[in-house]
């Protein structure tokens, strides 16, 4: 693998390779360049996952023609597909290299210990949304209770924007979450549930279920569950598995023929 990367760099197939390297004890994303080919020997593989794809979009924003190689896992391939669709990256300029392993929930120093099976607190299970709940489990509750449970979770939000900042497919130059006409600024918690709903809506057709947002969330809000539901609706309504295909995102198509019936008032 390392030889292959060296070859790619040497032959100019890529200008830079995005992978991981241990720095001061932390496995961190690292850009390997042509100038220092020996550096590639320090590349590590394994279950580390950072949004390398997002780093790639930032690089491309600076240098549109840069050719980037990178380690990918299942979800990173999906992320790349989404970014291709939204014209953030050009598949011609990206050379993915399949790494081993899948993202781990439980890296040392990531402190997401609450996500270990059985670690969700009793109180959270009783009044909030269990981190480990499936969509079906979350839908057991009646409407009012669901609302209370979600509001309990959302009110913990400290508006750190960690969920957005880590997300491999959040790339907008102007983020709706920072739009003061949509969401009030300057107070905690952020307006609930608007803040989280706005983000959820914008994840439709984008979220590739990597789970990084939930891992990043200091308030332990089950964001992944929310966005999983978003994905399920997208699949159901648009027959689209986000990131699985390279054709247009359902949300970028305008004026598609109507195949759905309007919902009657009573049934909603």
């Amino acid at each position: 693998m390392k030889n292959k990367i060296k070859e790619w760099l040497k032959s100019g197939q890529i200008d830079i390779f995005l992978g991981y390297k241990t720095l001061q004890g932390h496995p961190l994303p690292h850009a390997f360049g042509k100038d220092n080919l020996e550096d590639i020997d320090t590349l590590i593989t394994g279950s580390n996952y950072y949004p390398l794809e997002k780093i790639a979009t930032k690089l491309v924003a600076e240098k549109p023609d840069i050719k980037i190689g990178m380690i990918t896992q299942d979800h990173s391939q999906r992320a790349l597909n989404v970014l291709y669709i939204w014209n953030q990256l050009d598949p011609e300029n990206i050379k993915p290299l399949k790494g081993d392993g899948c993202s781990s929930n439980l890296k040392e120093h990531a402190d997401d210990s609450h996500r270990e099976a059985g670690k969700s607190g009793q109180f959270k299970k009783q009044f909030g949304m269990n981190t480990h709940a499936s969509i079906e489990e979350a839908e057991i509750f009646a409407q009012q209770e669901r609302f209370q449970r979600w509001m309990y979770e959302f009110q913990k939000c400290i508006k750190c924007y960690g969920c957005r900042n880590i997300c491999p497919v959040c790339f907008c130059k102007q983020c709706s979450l920072e739009h003061s006409n949509l969401i009030g600024t300057g107070s905690l918690p952020p307006e609930a549930p608007i803040y989280h709903l706005v983000r959820a809506v914008h994840m439709a057709g984008r979220c590739i279920d990597c789970g990084l947002c939930e891992e990043a969330c200091p308030a332990d809000i089950p964001l992944r569950l929310l966005y999983r539901k978003v994905n399920a609706i997208v699949t159901e309504l648009f027959d689209y598995e986000t990131g699985s295909r390279l054709d247009q995102s359902p949300f970028s198509i305008i004026g598609e023929s109507i195949t759905l019936k309007l919902k009657p008032i009573a049934a909603a």
């Binding site: 979350a138 409407q143 979600w150 709903l197 809506v201 309504l237 759905l260």
Partner: peptide
């Protein structure tokens, strides 16, 4: 398209406990 979008929102609101509105 509007139908789909509205359908999407309806389902999401439902999931959050704000269904039917």
């Amino acid at each position: 398209m509007t139908i789909k979008r509205i359908n999407f929102l309806q389902e999401l609101l439902e999931f959050m406990g704000l269904g039917g509105r």
